[in-house]
């Protein structure tokens, strides 16, 4: 089984396509939607993890393309230099997915890579420059 994280960009006339249904049914892919910003008659953005056999993922991506929907595979990850972090919480102000969280009791920062959308907003919002992106 392979896993990739992708961002789909729906043009205005494609937001009604039941894409996830076909990806699951026809290609046996497991989808985990991480972030969705879709509005009828507007462009849409969908970020998700896709889990499945390598050849099925490839077929699924081809299918997405055939529907006129563009996609980007995330091949980057956010690196958190925990030893240099002071746990101030400034990054949590901009993190859209909640991957970066401050504990309510211990007030320590935690970073869940699985939840991360690699939007990179945390990199610049960190006053101590302890967040970076790796390819």
């Amino acid at each position: 089984m392979n896993k990739i994280k992708i961002c789909l960009y729906f043009p205005p006339n494609k937001v009604t396509v039941p894409l996830s249904y076909h990806l699951i049914k026809n290609f046996d892919l497991q989808l985990n939607i991480l972030h969705a910003d879709i509005d009828l008659a507007k462009t849409g953005k969908l970020i998700m993890d896709v889990l499945g056999e390598k050849k099925n993922i490839e077929k699924g991506l081809k299918f997405i393309e055939q529907q006129g929907i563009k996609y980007k595979i995330f091949n980057k990850t956010i690196i958190w230099q925990e030893d240099k972090c002071i746990h101030c919480g400034a990054c949590t102000a901009v993190c859209p997915s909640g991957a970066l969280k401050l504990g309510t009791i211990d007030c320590m920062l935690t970073f869940d890579k699985e939840e991360c959308l690699v939007c990179e907003l945390c990199i610049k919002s960190c006053p101590l420059n302890v967040m970076s992106v790796a390819f």
């Binding site: 002071i86 101030c88 949590t92 007030c107 320590m108």
Partner: peptide, 21 residues
Amino acid sequence: SGTIKLNNKKVSTAPLSSLKV
């Protein structure tokens, strides 16, 4: 607590000062 209500909308809150340190 992590969120407050502003104009009837739930808004995330974040500190800038490190309570841990």
